[in-house]
Amino acid sequence: MEALRAIRILDTVIDCIRYRFVKRKMDQDDYQKTLLQALRVRSRLGVADDALPPVPEPVRPENLHGSSRLSAGVQVSDGKTAAILTYRPAFTDLTDPDYPESDGIRIVFGETSLRIGPEGEGVQLESFDAIDIMSLSPRDRFFTPLSWAAGIGLEGVPGEARGRLLRISGGAGFAWGGGQYGLSYFMALPRFFAGSGLDDGYSLGGVVRAGWIFRLFEHSKWQAFAEGGGFGAGHQSYAAAAGLEGSVRLGRNWHLGFETMHEERWGQSGFRTQMALHWFH
């Protein structure tokens, strides 16, 4: 067992040396000298008797849902009930149960959400995401990738006025895990808003966000999150939110989505719960 352990350690060391050279963290002289030393030691240990652990098979395309999604659901916000209709041409989000926790990806293009409110409110644009991307890459002792996010769209303002604001967002941070205990992340997310309902017509600031992506049971995927921050340029405001969202796979192209959260923004505070049936095609 000790010899096998030494073989695996040296194989990992050799891979790490090659990786550092490719990433230009070592010059060629140091690379050749260090690699030759490691290979000499490794050659004395022979060949490992046991086979390498099997590589997990990725999700087969024929078992994945379609790329476009149509959703219909019910939202309860501040004691008011409304119907929500959403169409997303592409592609996936962080709580998609078809993908493993290690695939911390959100890739959304052209998602449009309409709110059919109580009598008198009619049909309103709840939100529009022209593009919304978040890439969470888990870090470990050897690899330290940077996670990042970027997006642009329109966002509704809570309350009676229900105005619309242009939103441009981005950010970077770190993620850990991706195994049986889920994927955790921490991000710093600057945000810019513009609209006639804001002082000076704009607001610039940001939030810090922490989240945990996990599975409660097979064929489901959930995210618990919390964020807080503020906006100091233009319209000044405090922002905070915390909640839980998730999806349960009912069939290849049918998912059931759930979201509940409490948020404070633009001087208003409220609690929102939403449930929707998703059809992929």
Rank of each mutant, 00 (worst) to 15 (best):
M1Q: 13
E2F: 11
R8M: 09
R18M: 10
R18D: 15
Y19A: 12
F21S: 03
F21Y: 14
R24I: 06
Q32R: 15
Q32S: 12
L35I: 02
L36H: 12
A38Q: 00
L39G: 00
L45R: 01
G46H: 04
L52P: 07
E57S: 11
G66R: 08
T81Q: 05
A90H: 11
F91W: 14
Y99T: 10
P100M: 00
I105Y: 12
R106Q: 15
G110L: 05
I116F: 08
G117K: 03
G117A: 01
E121C: 00
E126L: 12
S137R: 14
D140S: 05
P145K: 02
P145Y: 00
L146G: 01
L146Y: 05
S147C: 03
L154G: 07
E155P: 04
G159I: 06
E160P: 07
E160S: 15
G163T: 12
L165N: 08
S169W: 11
A172Y: 08
G173V: 02
G173W: 04
F174A: 12
F174L: 12
A175H: 04
G179T: 03
G182K: 02
L183R: 01
R191A: 09
A194K: 13
L204D: 08
V208W: 09
R215Q: 10
F225D: 06
F225Q: 06
E227Y: 06
G229E: 05
A233F: 13
S237W: 07
Y238E: 15
A240Q: 11
A242I: 10
G243P: 02
E245M: 13
E245V: 07
G246I: 04
S247F: 03
R252W: 03
H255P: 02
L256G: 04
E263I: 05
G267W: 06
H278A: 04
F280E: 03
